[in-house]
Amino acid sequence: MPRMKLQKVTPLAYAPMVALETYARTHNDARTYELIKIRASELNGCGYCLAMHTRDARKQGESDERIAALAGDWRAVDLWSPAEAAALALTDEVTRLGEGGVSDATWDEAVARWGEKGVAGLIMAIVVINAWNRIAIPTGLEAADL
């Protein structure tokens, strides 16, 4: 059982999150969107979001092999299109923002594969899943709550 349901405690704060989610979902390829959600949730250790987006990815036709590969070194397996690999690399670097931010190489590859508008959509998807992870973890949401 969660510690709180944020949408009930602060509906005015929750509404913009839902709006950002809607924007990100409608401005990204559905399968890539779920890959981003799974990968960021793996990196952040958010079991609730991981379970939700694994389920959603399977509904989109995603394979168990590709989903499982996102838990480790996804680069070690040859399962991704060049565009997907660019989106996953961007997800890793935006989620784990270090002192240098996103590397030029990762940025340039993402823009080459997705274009500026596509990268803008990817960034919003990465931002929103990181925000959802940061809501789900402290409020105690768990996969059993789905």
Score class of each variant (00 low, 15 high):
15 A>K: 15
59 K>Y: 01
13 A>G: 13
79 L>D: 00
79 L>H: 00
103 S>V: 04
118 G>F: 03
17 M>W: 14
100 G>H: 13
13 A>E: 03
122 L>V: 00
123 I>C: 13
78 D>E: 14
8 K>A: 11
128 V>C: 08
128 V>A: 09
20 L>V: 10
137 I>H: 08
13 A>F: 11
145 D>R: 09
107 W>P: 07
29 D>R: 05
111 V>C: 02
50 L>V: 05
126 I>H: 08
82 P>S: 05
133 N>D: 09
21 E>D: 15
97 L>M: 15
36 I>R: 06
94 V>P: 06
29 D>W: 12
43 L>T: 01
42 E>N: 13
53 H>I: 07
21 E>W: 13
55 R>W: 08
31 R>E: 09
9 V>Q: 13
12 L>P: 01
36 I>V: 14
68 A>I: 00
84 E>L: 09
122 L>Q: 01
102 V>D: 10
102 V>Q: 07
71 A>M: 02
16 P>W: 03
82 P>E: 02
40 A>G: 05
54 T>S: 13
64 D>G: 11
40 A>M: 01
113 R>A: 15
145 D>W: 03
92 D>K: 09
22 T>K: 14
1 M>F: 11
48 Y>L: 02
51 A>S: 14
10 T>K: 12
42 E>M: 12
133 N>T: 04
110 A>Q: 08
11 P>L: 02
101 G>H: 04
104 D>M: 04
17 M>D: 04
90 L>K: 03
75 R>K: 11
99 E>G: 14
123 I>V: 15
116 E>A: 13
53 H>S: 01
1 M>S: 13
95 T>V: 08
107 W>F: 14
86 A>L: 00
105 A>G: 08
3 R>K: 15
78 D>A: 15
84 E>I: 01
89 A>D: 11
41 S>P: 14
134 R>F: 07
32 T>I: 08
5 K>C: 03
56 D>G: 05
20 L>H: 12
45 G>Y: 05
4 M>Q: 12
66 R>G: 06
30 A>L: 11
83 A>S: 14
134 R>N: 07
81 S>A: 09
116 E>K: 15
48 Y>P: 00
121 G>Q: 10
44 N>M: 13
76 A>P: 04
17 M>R: 15
11 P>I: 00
95 T>C: 05
80 W>Q: 07
135 I>D: 09
47 G>C: 04
104 D>W: 04
68 A>D: 05
136 A>S: 11
82 P>I: 03
71 A>E: 13
53 H>L: 00
64 D>E: 14
8 K>V: 03
41 S>A: 11
93 E>S: 07
14 Y>V: 02
103 S>A: 07
93 E>F: 03
70 L>D: 02
110 A>V: 00
87 A>H: 02
46 C>R: 00
62 E>Y: 05
22 T>M: 07
79 L>W: 04
72 G>V: 02
50 L>S: 12
119 V>E: 01
30 A>Y: 06
19 A>N: 02
17 M>A: 10
121 G>W: 06
42 E>D: 10
8 K>D: 15
113 R>V: 02
39 R>Y: 01
81 S>N: 10
64 D>H: 01
127 V>A: 15
48 Y>S: 02
50 L>N: 13
106 T>S: 09
53 H>R: 06
145 D>T: 06
133 N>G: 03
81 S>Y: 12
67 I>F: 03
41 S>I: 07
105 A>T: 08
128 V>I: 15
34 E>K: 12
1 M>Y: 10
72 G>I: 04
